[in-house]
């Protein structure tokens, strides 16, 4: 090797490709490249939606209608199982299921779309070098934009509910709503982190996303969506915290349904799961992503 070797860190144009073990590439340049191409992820998510709904005017409507109808079905099931309830309690239950389901679906679509983003990106991955984490990231952005319009739907249901049943306990606007952006960010980051794990697994085992769909269903039943977080007492409450979406979903319920702030325990849980899944998922994904092109 000649003596004039420049350091690739300082000469942006000089790139050295060398063999790697399953270890991380230099992280600073990776994150810089990632940040530099964030517009690509945003555009990709927009175009993916466009491609998907290009021929259907009702695509966007369906995105809202689908969870809304499901929420109604779950509501009926829950009410029937409990043997009916008073009407003002009914609307509370419906609202809880609705916002829980919308939030859960946000995480679910981050994870399931992200899981296939690498295997579905075949051509792009074989023909262009870029930080691969941009593909799951783009799925997370898509999921976020699909989640946003469900919030007005929830609010509309609550407003109508309060008007029809004035005795219901659901609060109107409260200051605790200020926690909502934080909670949504935690859901997005947790979803993104977990999608990195499953996207990597899906490269090695192509049936991961099939298993994932069963797994997500069980996960939904294990989460405080169809039941209330306060139904758990004592050590049973650990169930809430070993579930990556447990703390965010019970915070969601506190803020939206009860109009109170999340408990400190829930906040710690939200942050721990968000950072934990981002770090673990990021390590798992980035340390293996140079292998993807060979395995696709």
């Amino acid at each position: 090797m000649s003596n004039t070797t420049a350091n690739p860190e300082f000469s942006p144009n000089l790139q050295v490709f060398e063999p790697h073990k399953a270890s991380l590439p230099p992280l600073v340049p990776y994150l810089k490249e990632f940040w530099k191409r964030r517009a690509f992820a945003i555009e990709l998510s927009r175009f993916a939606d466009k491609a998907e709904y290009l021929d259907s005017k009702f695509g966007k409507v369906w995105l809202i209608l689908n969870p809304l109808l499901l929420a109604m079905i779950y509501f009926l099931l829950v009410t029937v199982l409990r043997g009916g309830m008073k009407s003002n309690q009914g609307i509370t239950t419906l609202a809880h299921i609705l916002i829980g389901l919308f939030t859960f679906y946000f995480a679910q679509s981050c994870i399931s779309a992200g899981a296939t983003s690498i295997t579905a990106g075949g051509r792009l991955i074989l023909n262009q070098a870029f930080p691969r984490a941009l593909l799951p990231f783009s799925s997370t952005i898509s999921a976020f934009y699909q989640f946003l319009p469900t919030l007005p739907v929830y609010i509309a249901v609550v407003v109508i509910g309060k008007w029809v049943f004035p005795s219901t306990q659901i609060p109107g606007f409260t200051w605790s709503y200020l926690w909502i952006p934080f909670i949504i960010a935690c859901v997005g980051i947790t979803g993104f982190g977990l999608s990195l794990v499953f996207a990597t697994m899906n490269v090695y085992f192509r049936d991961t996303n099939k298993l994932l769909s069963y797994f997500m269903r069980i996960w939904l039943y294990a989460s405080p969506v169809l039941w209330l977080p306060e139904m758990l007492h004592g050590w049973h409450r650990t169930i809430l915290f070993i579930n990556p979406l447990g703390p965010v979903l019970s915070s969601t319920s506190n803020v939206w349904i009860k109009g109170i702030n999340p408990t400190p325990g829930e906040l710690v849980g939200c942050i721990a799961w968000a950072l934990g899944s981002l770090l673990i998922g990021g390590y798992f994904f980035i340390s293996r992503e140079r292998d993807f092109a060979v395995r696709i």
């Binding site: 144009n13 000089l14 060398e18 063999p19 023909n127 070098a129 140079r290 292998d291």
Partner: peptide
């Protein structure tokens, strides 16, 4: 293009790359 990592040896590239692979 930096898409496939070498199994052995190394590649040093000086410059911005544009690819039209397939």
């Amino acid at each position: 293009a930096g898409i496939l990592p070498p199994t052995e040896g190394r590649i040093i590239v000086n410059g911005k790359i544009s690819t039209l692979l397939a």
